[in-house]
Write a protein that binds this DNA or RNA. Structure first.
Lengths: 341, 341
DNA sequence: TTGAAAGCGATACCAG
DNA sequence: CTGGTATCGCTTTCAA
């Protein structure tokens, strides 16, 4: 039977002993920075291999105070928008030598708070956060380089990468108006964060500018989930004066609306006009395809990661003058809006 | 201007000093386990608060050799199957007091290997792994409690939670056969892992049992991605003798097939019969809905987490007798298979 | 080029 | 109930 080596307990000390050098020397060859004679380096390397030695990263990090890890914290991992952002950050982080890991908070403040208490949050070098907490207070207690994505919290003191929600909603609504619609409904969720508020505001402003008074019965506010979008759509379409156009304020709501239209046997672009906010699977599947406000999801992630890494490298703990980047959105016109006259 | 406290450098020592106690005592109140007089406990707590002291989890973990963190490593975070598994493990882990974080390897062996080199992998208490590496060798080097999910690697020496891929594919194919189909195609990807192989095998066995010789031209092997499913479907349907039924061997391929049928203007359940493996968004959207082999995704995650936590608690490093759990699949019959006579 | 020793910031055992 | 101190495993001056 082969010899079973218990690698568990092998430390730098053992290596030093077996190689007849000091731990300092072993550490040197381990980190490759200092000058070590070629002969001893080889000897140490050999012992490391023989002993199957794996350095304890924790001990190292404890003195270096650096782990080369980033974490990205999102409300839900099922939403393609978030995974797109994650993809962007991972890509940039990787190039810069950082390992990225993902934490999903389920949109639960307690879970988010838990993360910030955890071993992990204390030991990553930086955090990219799509926050769930609403009060700036929470964010001000964060003691780590952090950049906010998508949802920005005023007075949080943190950097952020956002999009122009206002303009996106405004353009969508204006598109409806220009095509002759007036009974334009908006389906959204709670106005907990700036994004939701801004989208509603953009919708409203466009209406007002075109001299159409937003009718409260055309504002269906539920949750930001698909099911809610479905229900709101059904209610809207079964009401006495159904709208001719619906603006679905996020990807999930839009999917819910599309499913509702399927069940109600309403033809999109014919019986009802629709614009969604953010790309989504069904919008690209149905025919005609659904017009959406597209945002640079991937780029939001890359931007955020770049800002974060910059901050880490500069060892920038300065929260006094947060940088905000606002990326542009684009109305992808497809066939879901009917021209009225 | 307010006083700016540099919490960074406050350690248990400072607290001890300010509270006129030993570090041992501070550690005690920190961990709450040992008996400390109510008065000193209060005093220490007060100082902790005043100084805004945050214990260094790394130092603690270094001696405790425990972080209460689990990590789940998946090939891609965009695939709903994986997020469902993740959801299951997080749920169980949380109840057991473990924090879970997610790592996506992009199905890249190098990235997966990188994870196992990283600070993180060294410092979580356990790992749930949907592996990308193909050789058992790689898995045998893992020095952490680990449970494999979905893809099982023989001789890896690791525990695993899988499903009965063979039976799923077998049932699907048999369903086609019982409905009178004979020109049954299968679209799959590389047979890198047991799951793909088993599904193909199940398909084949069913055919043979019904006396139908599997025709190689009805086996389209591409990648496991949607685009490949789309292309294979188009090729199949535009060939001289198109199949009457298609078995799409995973969720993405099935979505690709559905999109292809849309573009080819073929009615599912009428012009072409379809069964997918694993639930997916489009299968539930189109009408009639698509019959699929459903697997207990969430449960795979919970099962794996339970096994892992058990292992951790037992401090079980024994790899000599890996446990394998095989969960059952179910054919969800919907309207996508036409009865032929 | 190499080694000795002082940390890094907690925990936990042993006394008292 | 409380304190002293060795220890966890590695990095990093400071000397040699």
């Amino acid at each position: 039977m082969e010899r079973v080596v218990t690698e568990k307990d092998i430390t730098i000390k053992d290596v030093a002993k077996h190689a007849n050098v000091s731990v300092a020397t072993v550490s040197r060859v381990l980190n490759g920075l200092d000058r070590v004679s070629e002969s001893t380096r080889k000897r140490v390397l050999k012992v490391i291999d023989e002993l199957n030695f794996v350095p304890n990263t924790m001990a190292a990090s404890m003195v270096k105070k650096k782990t080369n890890m980033l974490s990205v914290v999102v409300p839900e991992i099922q939403n393609p928008f978030y995974t797109a952002v994650i993809g962007g950050t991972v890509e940039v982080a990787k190039k810069a030598g950082f390992f990225t890991l993902v934490v999903s908070t389920n949109g639960d403040e307690a879970e988010e708070a838990e993360f910030f208490e955890s071993f992990l949050s204390k030991n990553v070098d930086g955090i990219i956060l799509i926050g769930t907490h609403k009060e700036a207070e929470f964010y001000r207690t964060i003691r780590k380089p952090t950049v906010l994505v998508d949802r920005y919290i005023n007075n949080s003191g943190l950097d952020g990468v956002m999009i122009d929600n206002y303009r996106g909603a405004y353009e969508a609504t204006r598109h409806f108006l220009e095509y002759g619609h007036e009974r334009i409904a908006i389906i959204d969720g709670a106005h907990d964060f700036n994004d939701g508020k801004d989208r509603y505001w953009g919708y409203q402003q466009a209406m007002v500018e075109f001299g159409v008074t937003p009718d409260p019965k055309y504002h269906k506010q539920g949750s930001w989930l698909e099911e809610s979008g479905y229900r709101s759509t059904v209610e809207l379409m079964q009401s006495e004066y159904p709208p001719t156009a619906i603006f679905a304020a996020n990807n999930l709501i839009c999917q819910g609306a599309i499913k509702a239209f399927r069940d109600l046997k309403l033809d999109i672009g014919e019986d009802i006009s629709l614009i969604g906010f953010d790309e989504n699977e069904l919008a690209q599947f149905v025919q005609p395809r659904v017009t959406v406000v597209r945002r640079p999801t991937h780029e939001m992630g890359t931007q955020a990661a770049e800002m974060l890494i910059q901050k880490i490298k500069e060892n920038d703990a300065d929260q006094s003058n947060p940088k905000k980047v606002v990326l542009d959105v684009e109305l992808m016109k497809r066939g879901s809006v009917k021209k009225l006259n």
